[in-house]
């Protein structure tokens, strides 16, 4: 029982931190229908920017906001390369991802920045709430509660945005670009907005993970897009893809299940070096199972 509880706690804590990544990947992978490899650079960029600012004493909220802005900037760069230079969107993402590797090293000054002595937004929030008489302790449950509240706020904002005039135009851009252009929408602009939001959310994940784990690392983004895509697909396999709310819940639950499966894989004796293989297998399963189900059951 204790073991199960610790698995679930770890799943919830890590899963919620990664949920912003799921939301970011949802926008590019689902709405824009392409795997945006910028994520592999914008996720560690979020961690690098937050960590570098935190170690020099910048306020944790400002450092996290700066990380989000940097991620959004990376998304804008990919969008500009794709739309203005007419370069394929996957290649544009690879170009920015590659450039960001150097940017991240330059931002951090080395391959790894420790945050063990630096403040984090979690410590700050706990301190404020305790000043109001809450009596919280630092720990996994507190992290879960704070991240969950932040996640709900971001999800509501994203869902609301996707129902605005601009949000509809962003969604239609990936689905039927000819149509939405013929209705007077500058799709260069909507692509830029979508990629900025996506990579801003992904960088937020990186910034929060760095503060939770106590370090930012140049290698933290490797395979992150596959993680996000696997999560989005797992969620979709369960919830379907019928509405904005379902899409968002599916992306979040997908990340949680992904983390649970990874935690279980480690418990049954797999080594950390096996994890990329597990991720690949999960992605394959999430893609294949809905198709097999159609073939077998006929839906």
């Amino acid at each position: 029982m204790i073991q199960l509880q610790s698995i679930l706690t770890s799943m919830a804590e890590q899963g919620l931190l990664f949920a912003f990544l799921g939301l970011g990947v949802l926008i590019t992978f689902r709405f824009f229908r392409f795997p945006d490899l910028t994520a592999e650079g914008s996720y560690p960029l979020g961690g690098a920017v937050a960590a570098s600012l935190l170690v020099v004493g910048v306020d944790p909220f400002a450092a996290t906001a700066a990380a989000v802005a940097a991620g959004a900037g990376a998304g804008v760069a990919t969008a500009l390369i794709h739309t203005k230079l007419k370069i394929n969107n996957i290649i544009a993402g690879i170009i920015v991802m590659t450039a960001l590797y150097t940017v991240n090293l330059r931002v951090m000054g080395r391959a790894n920045v420790s945050l063990l002595t630096a403040p984090s937004i979690y410590e700050d929030i706990v301190r404020w709430l305790n000043a109001l008489g809450f009596g919280l302790r630092d720990g996994a449950m507190t992290t879960i509660a704070i991240t969950a509240v932040l996640l709900v706020l971001v999800s509501i904002a994203l869902a609301a945005f996707l129902r605005t005039d601009l949000g509809l135009a962003v969604r239609a851009t990936g689905e039927n670009e000819t149509m939405i252009r013929s209705l007077g929408v500058d799709t260069d602009r909507t692509k830029m907005i979508g990629l900025a939001i996506s990579n801003g959310a992904i960088a937020l994940s990186g910034a929060l993970v760095a503060q939770n784990h106590g370090f930012a690392d140049i290698g933290m983004g490797i395979g992150i897009l596959v993680t996000g895509a696997a999560a989005v697909l797992i969620g979709e396999a369960i919830f379907g893809d019928r509405s904005i709310a379902r899409w968002i819940v599916a992306a979040i639950v997908g990340v949680l299940i992904y983390r649970l499966l990874v935690a279980l894989a480690l418990r049954v004796g797999m080594q950390p070096v096996d994890l990329k293989f597990v991720t690949a297998a999960l992605l394959l399963a999430a893609l294949a199972v809905p198709r097999l189900r159609v073939r077998l059951v006929g839906r």
Binding site: A160, T164, D165, L166, L183
Partner: peptide, 20 residues
């Protein structure tokens, strides 16, 4: 309704107002 809402805004600036 979302398709028609997009068409109702033909050629206009699209902002952060609720579409439908």
């Amino acid at each position: 309704e979302e398709n028609l809402a997009m068409a109702a805004k033909r050629g206009q600036r699209r902002g952060l107002a609720r579409a439908v």
